[in-house]
Design a protein around this nucleic acid. Structure first.
Lengths: 343, 343
DNA sequence: GTTAGCACTCTAACGAGATGAGTGCTAACC
DNA sequence: GGTTAGCACTCATCTCGTTAGAGTGCTAAC
């Protein structure tokens, strides 16, 4: 649809704008050297690109800035994205060379590394316990009224929840049930736990146990999917350094949204539908507060199933190439690392 | 040292400045009605108060603002602090009426409530596991190289840590040791765990166990005080709404500091020395980034020992009376609640 | 001791050029 | 026909002098 020359010019404009945050004029494009035309010619093309919707003009006598459509085209067709040769490869490899042996810890650390490297905000979704399975279950009485339920998953994550005990349940009986539960439910995926609880322990137990109803109630809440995905956010304040967010009020609404876990979840999870890298530009994000933001996400997986996502949030004027490169490497390496641990 | 009239005027100025954030002039004080003097008289007193160091003048023809010394005097002698009658009492009571049965959950929730009520930033220190004791210890093998160590404390908190296992340790032997450990170390304060580990299991075990050295190494790292105090931060973005922080750069350094756990710890922990409420004004905080901030902290305790702190961070121009009232109630109620749970 | 009055100071707000980056258009050039 | 030089025009931003107003300090009167 676009001529080769138009693509070159669009590319040059987006590149320029990404690094300068200023509307870019015909002269500066001409001077760059990689587009060998005079300002006048470039002006003509720019007018055409604006008509086609790829560029915008803040006001008559200013340069052009990319529109959302322009960014979209840039991301889809022009980004020089070679994840293998990113300059930051070294940093990432160094990160994975460190000896970290807990998944959560790795993810958390990765969030920091990401935001530091990119100077944007990183949002990581911890491993989705949903697809992992039960390794061990335990119910530990604290006093006669409360107990701690502990669930260890196949990926070594530990979830715990305090439950209140109804009066009259004996410790020994509880132990018996928990033991049975362990023998029956180990390796069952977490999301099937509650249904299996009833099918496996249903009839069989009812006559062996005195307080069947109450006990089931306790186990039910204990296995309740409190196992939410954990979200790790890092570098939120980097938003403040972006010139487009010098308006304190706007940046406040953004930072406020970032403090809300459900919002972040909603932003990151749909990405797990597709496996590849996803870029959501401006209004493609659901919240209007993010109209001037872009979100780039990738997923990491285990056994081919996406486990969680890693994402970078920045202004629409974002270093797409660099960020995509970094995310690409990191998601691949994370996947490899997990595969290596839990093969 | 100050005359009654000077105290009245200082009080009026601080009150006014707290609610307006503008230098306050003699006329506006006179008009308030509670100081029945003409602007000229008040001007004279203001000049004296400035000489004494309680007030400052941004420039010659502006009103006065309180100096740090002025705030300090206000906090120490003038704040109308009646924690019992705070208007927010209802909100707090409603919060405690909710049925929450995990300490952590309560603290986390309290952080949110606090920042919402005050519109400042709340910083809460989770229960200091340091002073709690061991209820249960467990070492759960994940595969032949790694295991999860789980520690349940007397207050029902669950700490877990992934440790790597040296090759050649048998599962049964490990179980034996862990069982012994449980029988010997339950109810030992966490901070004594490591030393007791050696004194209790030292000679006795050495001959019964094949890989004594390696096993001890594992247990050592498992009991390592990874049990850091957890910090709950809420409403950090409220900083952005304060007019004194309209400068994005300054607020960025503050928010960046708030992202660093060690900094927060350092700011909150010294407060646990004294039992009462502490107010640190401006440069009394250690970091110079907080030169324009005040931090008010209170502690909650169990069995008379301070367990953790709750704090509010805001501009030096802060609603001291209100915040101190709220913190007072909350810390008292938290203490009562913990006492009720773990009596 | 208190207060009215007044000259003085200093910031913030306003508005009128001046500046300059950038455009669109036309006409000339290859 | 595609490309480019030239030029008039637009418009945000910067500068600078002026003004308005809030507030002070001082003096003199009450």
């Amino acid at each position: 649809m676009l001529t080769e020359r138009q693509r070159m010019i669009l590319n040059a404009i987006v590149d320029d704008y990404i690094s300068s945050a200023e509307p870019v004029g015909s002269r500066s494009i001409s001077k760059r050297g990689d587009v060998g035309y005079s300002p006048a010619t470039i002006r003509n093309e720019m007018a055409d690109l604006e008509d086609l919707g790829y560029l915008e003009q803040p006001h008559t006598s200013a340069g052009r800035i990319p529109s959302h459509k322009g960014y979209r085209y840039y991301v889809d067709h022009l980004v020089p994205w070679n994840s293998a040769e990113t300059a930051e490869l070294g940093t990432i490899r160094a990160f994975f060379a460190e000896k970290l042996n807990a998944t959560e810890q790795v993810i958390q650390h990765a969030a920091m590394i990401l935001s530091n490297m990119t100077n944007y905000t990183s949002i990581l979704l911890g491993p989705e316990v949903f697809h992992t399975s039960l390794r061990h279950f335990q119910l530990l009485p604290l006093d006669d009224k409360t107990a701690v339920a502990i669930i260890v998953t196949s990926t070594g994550q530990v979830e715990n929840k305090t439950v209140s005990l109804p009066p009259g349940i004996s410790v020994s009986e509880m132990e018996k049930v928990v033991n049975l539960l362990n023998s029956k439910l180990v390796n069952v995926p977490l999301y099937k736990l509650k249904s299996q609880l009833y099918s496996e322990l249903g009839e069989e137990m009812q006559r062996h146990i005195s307080h069947y109803e109450e006990l089931m109630q306790v186990l039910d809440t204990a296995l309740e999917s409190d196992h939410e995905q954990r979200i790790y956010l890092s570098g939120a304040t980097n938003m403040l350094t972006q010139p487009e967010f010098k308006d304190v009020d706007k940046v406040k609404t953004i930072l406020d949204l970032l403090e809300e876990t459900p919002t972040l979840l909603k932003m990151l999870t749909p990405a797990s539908g597709g496996t590849g890298m996803q870029v959501r530009i401006g209004t493609e994000n659901k919240h209007e507060a993010f109209a001037n933001c872009s979100l780039i996400t990738a997923t990491y997986s285990l056994d081919g199933k996406p486990l969680g996502s890693i994402g970078i949030l920045g202004p629409t004027r974002m270093e797409y190439a660099r960020v995509m490169g970094i995310l690409g490497i990191l998601s691949r390496d994370l996947t490899a690392m997990l595969a290596h641990w839990y093969k």
